[in-house]
């Protein structure tokens, strides 16, 4: 699933536009070491963390999109950094469980229909 389609389907806020890619997986976690060790490639990552280090983790792990859940807004300096790195920085008022479930279903539907 392409980011624009996910943004439209889930009515996500767009803080920073990233490079286009095919979202194949998702990962939900707030502990950066756990994400670093386990997040699959071509993932969208759901977290409540809002500081600049999530962009560093995403960049190192080649995670191309981040959703900050629970209506939490990102810190100012992180938006510019995301744009620089070509990483999508998105937001939702849903909690992590809810948005992850929605993404899970969308990716599963796409797999079944594609």
């Amino acid at each position: 699933m392409r980011p624009y389609l996910l943004i439209e389907s889930l009515n996500l806020k767009v803080y920073a536009k990233g490079r286009d890619f095919e979202i194949k997986n998702g990962y939900t976690c707030d502990l950066l070491s756990v994400v670093m060790a386990n997040c699959p490639e071509n993932s969208i990552w759901v977290t409540v963390q809002r500081h600049i280090n999530i962009v560093a983790v995403a960049s190192l792990r080649e995670i191309r999109a981040i959703i900050i859940s629970q209506g939490i807004s990102p810190e100012e300096n992180i938006i510019e950094k995301s744009e620089e790195e070509g990483i999508w920085l998105l937001g939702t008022n849903d909690d992590s469980f809810t948005v992850s479930g929605k993404i899970y279903n969308l990716l599963k539907d796409e797999k079944n229909n594609g």
Binding site: D30, L31, L32, S33, V34, M36, A37, T47, Q49, H51, N53, I54
Partner: peptide, 16 residues
């Protein structure tokens, strides 16, 4: 609170 210090750091280095 920032999501660091989960006690996984050295274990992650060892694994990788």
């Amino acid at each position: 609170e920032m999501g660091f210090g989960a006690g996984m750091g050295l274990a992650n280095i060892k694994k990788n």
